[in-house]
Amino acid sequence: MARFDTFRDFATHYADLTSAEAFPAAFTAEIASAQLSIVEEPTSADMPDEQQARACVEQMTGDLFTLLADTRLAPLAPRIAWGMVHSFHKVAHYLAAQEDDAARELGELARISDPSEIHAAQIEDRQRLCQSLHEAMAAIECMRDHAAEVYRVETGRPWSATGGSRTSRALTASQIEARDFLAARAQERREAHAPSGPLVVVSGGSNWTEIDAIWNRLDLIHARVPAMVLATTAQQKGADLIAARWAAARGVPSVHFRLERRHGNRAGFKRNEQLVNLRPVEAIICEGSGIQANLAQRCRAAGVPLTIYRHSDFAGDRDDDGKEVA
């Protein structure tokens, strides 16, 4: 007799899987177009629906145990399910290797002093490739971790790869040695690529349109802090994009702090904490969501000089220098 009679039973049975909360962040598109191979054309297609992705993983892995339960083939279910999880794992590993290669190529291109449009297009292509591979890898790792959780529930033991380490942004069942290795590699990359200088943070809503306010304020800060480095919260539109364009126009190094999907729904707040821990010398925050409100509170508590812009500030004629908050 099958253990589940309806699709809803699967959702109920696996409702408490620890990997479930990672899907919203892992399946949110963070770039306008994606490209998983340099020979393919960029696509603006959406990411898969997060709920459907989660349900698909649960059903494809759980259905196997349902089919073979109470039959002479039941002992084979864990072995086949292990292979299903391993398939996700191998694809994620392959994407990680591709991302490393693309990142090396991007670094080599960035070190070449070439003002031509062709060179700029090559850099843009490689950057899109890196971001696309990272986005895809995070989604596949999320599905792998969820399938591994179904495997754990059904078999009573955690899934693990036959060789090497299993790591993910969710850190589900990761080994300490693997995390230490990744941390060491991240430090090496930071030394090679991270610009140094006083950090100025800009964050705001994706619907922010007041360009002059941000540019004028950044110009004033830049005049006081010529060696500044701009840090944004990496949205592809609104205040973050306005600030990024200012940095490009002024020749100011910029760092884009993207969400770390392993933190799930807390990713935005964790990013705020990371930004404030970097001890910025100043921050500009434009009205947006609770993420921006939280960042403003953290900056204020840390004593970071803060400029806040609200939509209501621009309802009529006003000075674009902004409002200083003590």
Rank of each mutant, 00 (worst) to 15 (best):
M1R: 02
D5N: 14
R8P: 04
R8I: 15
D9Q: 09
H13G: 09
L17M: 13
A22M: 06
A25G: 06
T28I: 07
A29P: 09
E30P: 14
E30D: 15
I31Y: 01
L36R: 02
E40M: 13
E40L: 15
P42E: 10
S44W: 06
S44Y: 09
P48G: 06
E50R: 07
Q51A: 12
R54M: 12
C56Y: 13
V57A: 06
E58V: 15
F65P: 06
F65I: 09
D70L: 05
L73V: 11
M84A: 10
V85K: 03
V85P: 05
H86N: 15
H89N: 00
H89S: 06
H89M: 05
Y94I: 14
D101G: 12
A102P: 07
R104P: 02
E108I: 11
L109R: 05
R111L: 12
R111H: 10
D114M: 08
E117D: 13
E117S: 13
I118W: 12
A120H: 12
A121Q: 11
Q122L: 03
I123A: 00
E124R: 10
D125M: 04
R126W: 11
Q127A: 14
R128N: 04
Q131T: 09
A139N: 07
I140D: 02
E141I: 02
A148Q: 03
A148R: 08
R152L: 15
R157K: 12
P158C: 15
S165A: 14
S174P: 05
D180M: 15
F181A: 08
A184C: 03
E188V: 15
R189D: 13
H193G: 08
V201K: 02
V201H: 01
G204Q: 09
G205F: 05
I211G: 05
D212P: 07
A213F: 04
R217C: 11
L218N: 03
L220I: 09
L220H: 06
H222E: 09
R224N: 13
P226W: 07
M228T: 03
L230R: 04
G238I: 11
L241G: 06
R245K: 12
A247P: 12
V252M: 02
H256A: 08
R258P: 03
L259D: 05
E260D: 14
H263C: 11
H263T: 11
R266G: 05
K270H: 15
R271E: 10
N272H: 02
N272Q: 06
N272A: 08
E273L: 07
Q274V: 15
N277W: 08
P280M: 08
V281K: 03
E282W: 10
E287R: 01
E287D: 09
A293M: 06
A296Q: 00
Q297H: 12
R300K: 14
I308F: 09
Y309T: 03
H311D: 13
A326M: 14
